[in-house]
Every structure is written in structure tokens, then in C-alpha cells.
């Protein structure tokens, strides 16, 4: 995969294939920020990605703010959608998780609080187009 990587996606199956391909690049300590509107497929992408690490119970962390999964790797799955201020993230101890070199962190709605994100990360931006296909753009920052 060469970055920035851009692909137009027309089905869930193609999203799944991309998530699988991308998952093979991940290492302990990595952070992935996911950016995209409601219904763009952020949680679905994360589910497929986690499955590659033998995690079957990944689901939406919108309400819980953070789900922790342990499979072949440990994952912190955040969702900033419901967070009301950056201070709340600091209170939750966001940096304790982001600085855990043993875990991989995935953040949905990461663009809501860009200031807390690590400089070095993968950023995946999903855009829903008028014909309901999606464009996935993956950058290595």
C-alpha cells in the first residue's frame, strides 16, 4: 500500500477487503484516526480490521466512548462522537491510552478533537458520494 492511498469503494465487500489489506500493516503502538460522516462505514471498517486480529466482538463505542478488545493484539476503540469537550478526553485519560506502546488505538470521529491526536498516525477519511459509493483515503502522517 502506497500512501496517500485512495480507492473508490462500491460495496461492503470492498470495504472489508481494504480493511483486511490495511490490517496487515498494523503494529503495536499504532494509531488510526477515522474521519467520515454518519453511515460512512467507520465502525464496519473497524469490525473487519479487528476480526483479522481474532477479535469478534468489536462494536460501536459511541455510547461507551471506549471499547477495549484483546485478541492477537490489544485494541483501544474510541469514538469522539458524543464527547462534549477536549477536557473530557483529558479526564478520561486519553493520553494514557494513546501512549500505550503495547496497544493499537482506533479513533472514530477523530476530527472532532484533532489536538489530542498523535502526530504519527494513519488517517482514514471516508467520503460518501451522491451515488452512495465511498472514497477511502488513507494517509500515513
Amino acid at each position: 500500500m502506497v500512501f496517500p492511498f485512495v480507492q473508490n469503494i462500491f460495496s461492503e465487500e470492498e470495504t472489508a477487503n481494504l480493511a483486511k489489506e490495511f490490517s496487515s500493516l498494523l503494529q503495536k503502538g499504532d494509531c488510526i484516526s477515522l474521519v467520515g460522516n454518519l453511515g460512512s462505514g467507520k465502525t464496519f471498517f473497524t469490525k473487519v480490521l479487528c476480526k483479522e486480529f481474532m477479535i469478534d466482538d468489536a462494536n460501536s463505542p459511541t455510547f461507551a466512548l471506549l471499547n477495549v478488545y484483546v485478541g492477537k493484539e490489544k485494541f483501544f476503540h474510541f469514538d469522539f462522537y458524543r464527547v462534549r469537550s477536549q477536557q473530557e478526553l483529558l479526564d478520561i485519560g486519553i493520553y494514557d491510552y494513546l501512549n500505550d506502546e503495547e496497544a493499537i488505538t482506533i479513533i472514530e470521529w477523530a476530527d472532532l478533537y484533532p489536538a489530542v491526536l498523535p502526530k504519527n498516525r494513519y488517517e482514514i477519511t471516508i467520503v460518501i458520494k451522491d451515488d452512495f459509493s465511498r472514497t477511502f483515503r488513507i494517509e500515513k502522517l
Binding site: T43, F44, K47, N59, S60, T62, F63
Partner: peptide, 9 residues
């Protein structure tokens, strides 16, 4: 259980 979003969500 739900495999993705909760009903309230």
C-alpha cells in the same frame, strides 16, 4: 446482542 450499533444509538 447487537453486532454493531445499539438501538438507542
Amino acid at each position: 446482542s447487537t453486532i454493531d450499533d445499539a438501538a438507542g444509538e
